[in-house]
Write a protein that binds this DNA or RNA. Structure first.
Lengths: 342, 342
DNA sequence: GTGAAAGCGCTAACAC
DNA sequence: GTGTTAGCGCTTTCAC
C-alpha cells in the first residue's frame, strides 16, 4: 500500500485519517492506490494503537421484551451514524448474566457502555464497577441515585397526560393497575397517578392494585378492581393494559363504553389490540439520540464532568380504548395522536 | 504481570491460554498473580496477533420485525456460550444499508457473519462479496441458490402440518392469503399450500390471494377471499393472519365457528390475538444453535468444505382460531401444542 | 519446560 | 510536508 503510492506508511495513515495536512498531489495518489487495491484499514490494529475500538456495548435485560426492539434499532442507527459499532448483550433478565456480559464487553475494550439495567438494585454493583472503567450511560431505567449518566422518559409527564385526557373526556372514577417493583417506571408512574388522580375524584388515589408488568397480572387485576366500579383503568404499561382489555372483553364489559383503558410505552401490540389502546408513547428515537450524545460527550471531554440525568417528555397517543362514552367505539384502524388533538 | 509472577510474558500467555504444558508450581504462581492483580487479557491485542477477534457479525433486516427478537436472543446466547461476541447490524429493510453494514463489520475483522438477508435478490451481491472474505451463514431466509451455508425452517413441512390439522378438524374449503415476494418463505409456503390443499378440495389450490407479509394486506385480502365461502383461511404468516382476524371480527364472521384461521411463525402476538391464533412455530432455538454450529465448523475446518443447507422442521401450535366447529370457542387462555395432541 | 525476541497493522512521536 | 522509528499487548516461533 505504501509502496503502491510511492510514499511512506505514515503518509498513508495521515491521508486516510486526515490527522495532519498532506500535499494535494500525493494525497491524490494515495487515495487512488487505496481505491485500486481495495485497501481497507484494519480496525483492530488501529484500535490497539489508538486505544479506542469505536465499539459500544449495549446491555439490555431481554430483547424479547416488546419495548426494546425499537429502542435497540434507534440506538444502533444513532451509533452507526457516528461510525461506531454495537456489541449486543442480552441478559435474559438475570443480574448474574448481566454482570458477566458487562465483564465480557469490558474485556473486549468497548469504548463505552449503554446499559438498560435488569434491576434497580441488583444491577448496581456491576454497573458501578463498569463506570470506573469506561463512560457509561443508563438508558430507560435507573439504577440507584446518581451512579452514572442516564437518559429516560419522564414518567410523571406521561401519567399526567393520561389523567388530563381522561378528565377531558369525562371520566371521573379512575383506578390504577401498576407494578410493585422498585424500578423508576413502577415507582414514578404510581406516584404520578396518586398525585394526579385526586383531581378527578378524592377516592381515586386509593384505587390501586400492584403486581408486575405482565399480561397475566393485567388480567388478574381486573377482577380485583371491578368491584369499585371504575370508569377508567389506568395501567402502568401496555402489557398490563392488553391483559386488562382481554379480561374485560371476556367479562362482557364494554370498552370504552363502560370503562376506558390506557397503557404506557406504545409497544406495537397497543395499536393492534381491540379496541386499539390509548397509551403514552416513549420518545424512542430521541432517547437513543440523547444517549448517543451523552456517550460522545463523555468520550470527547474529560471523563470527570458532573453526572447528567436527562428526562424526555413522552407523547399521548389517543386510540379507541379511551373514546368518550357518548361516541360509539370508532373503527379500530383509526388512531389519533396527541398533536392531532391540538 | 510477568514481573509479579516472576517469570516471562511468554509463560504467562501459555498458562492463561493453555497452549503448551507449563510447570505446575509456576502455573499456580501465575494464576495467583492474575487473580490478585485483577488481570484481564486485552482481547484487541490478542485479536491482532492471532488474527481472530472472537466476534461474529449479525446482520438482520429490521429488529422491530416481531419474528426477529427471539431469534436474536437465541443467537446471542448460543454465540456467547462459545465465548464469542455479537456485533449487531440493523439494515432498516434496505439492501443499500445492508451492504454498508456488512462492509463495516468486515472492516472490524469479524470472524464470521450471520446474515438474515433483506431481499432474496438485492442482497445477493453484498452477501457473495462477504462470502469471499469470511465464513458466512444465511439464517432464516435464502439468498439465491447455494451461495453460502444456510439454516432455515422447512416451510413445506409447516404448511403440511397446517393442512393436515385443518383436514383432521373437518375443514373442507380452505383458501390461502400469501405474499407475492420471491423469498423462500413466500414461495415455499404458497407452493406447499397449492400442493397440499387439493387433498381437501380440488378447487382449493386456486383460492389464493397474494400481497405482502403485512397486517394491512391480511385485512384487505379477507374481502377478496370471502365471496368464495371458505371455511378456513390459511395465512402465510402471523401478521397476515392477525389482520385477517381483525377484519373478520369487524365483519361479524365467527372464528372459528364459521371460518378457521391459521398463521405461520408464532410471533408473540399470535397467542394474544382473539381468538388466539393457531400457527406454525419456527424452531428458533434450534435454528440459532445450528447456525452457531455451522459457523463453528467453518471456522475450525478448512474454509472450502461443501456448502451446507439445513432445514429444520417446525411445530404446529393449535389454538382457538382453528377449533373444530362442533365445540364452541374455548377459553382464549387455553392453548394446546402439537405434542399434546399426540 | 522456559525465556528472548519477532512481529500482527496501525498511529504518533520525532527528525528532516 | 514527509519519512523513520518505536511501540500498542499479545502469541508464537526459536533457542536453550
Amino acid at each position: 500500500m505504501a509502496r503502491a503510492s510511492g510514499c511512506s506508511v505514515a503518509t498513508v495513515s495521515r491521508v486516510l485519517a486526515g490527522t495532519r495536512p498532506v500535499g494535494p498531489e500525493i494525497a491524490r495518489r494515495v487515495r487512488e492506490a487505496a481505491e485500486s487495491l481495495g485497501y481497507r484499514p484494519n480496525q483492530v490494529a488501529r484500535a490497539l494503537r489508538s486505544r479506542s475500538t469505536g465499539t459500544i456495548g449495549l446491555v439490555l435485560p431481554q430483547i424479547t421484551n416488546p419495548f426494546f426492539p425499537s429502542l435497540v434499532r434507534e440506538v444502533e442507527h444513532a451509533l452507526h451514524a457516528e461510525g461506531r459499532a454495537v456489541l449486543l448483550a442480552d441478559c435474559d433478565d438475570d443480574p448474574t448474566i448481566e454482570a458477566a456480559r458487562i465483564t465480557a464487553l469490558l474485556d473486549r475494550q468497548v469504548d463505552a457502555l449503554l446499559v438498560i439495567p435488569v434491576d434497580e438494585r441488583h444491577s448496581r454493583a456491576a454497573v458501578a464497577a463498569a463506570v470506573a472503567q469506561v463512560p457509561l450511560v443508563l438508558l430507560d431505567r435507573g439504577c440507584g441515585p446518581g451512579i452514572a449518566d442516564s437518559v429516560a422518559t419522564d414518567n410523571t409527564v406521561g401519567m399526567t397526560l393520561v389523567l388530563d385526557h381522561l378528565a377531558a373526556t369525562g371520566r371521573r372514577r379512575p383506578c390504577f393497575i401498576g407494578a410493585a417493583g422498585t424500578d423508576s417506571a413502577a415507582v414514578e408512574r404510581l406516584a404520578a397517578y396518586e398525585a394526579g388522580a385526586g383531581a378527578l375524584d378524592p377516592e381515586a388515589p386509593g384505587r390501586v392494585e400492584l403486581g408486575d408488568f405482565s399480561l397475566e397480572w393485567g388480567r388478574a387485576a381486573v377482577d380485583r378492581i371491578l368491584p369499585s366500579r371504575p370508569d377508567a383503568v389506568v395501567c402502568a404499561n401496555d402489557l398490563i393494559a392488553v391483559g386488562a382489555l382481554q379480561r374485560l372483553r371476556q367479562l362482557g364489559v364494554d370498552v370504552p363504553g363502560e370503562i376506558a383503558v390506557t397503557g404506557f410505552d406504545d409497544i406495537p401490540m397497543a395499536d393492534l389490540a381491540d379496541p386499539a389502546l390509548t397509551t403514552v408513547r416513549q420518545p424512542v428515537r430521541e432517547l437513543a439520540a440523547e444517549a448517543a450524545h451523552l456517550l460522545g460527550h463523555r468520550l470527547a471531554e474529560q471523563k470527570d464532568g458532573p453526572r447528567r440525568s436527562v428526562r424526555l417528555a413522552p407523547e399521548l397517543v389517543v386510540r379507541a380504548s379511551s373514546a368518550p362514552r357518548a361516541a360509539s367505539a370508532p373503527d379500530p384502524g383509526t388512531t389519533r395522536t396527541a398533536e392531532e388533538d391540538q
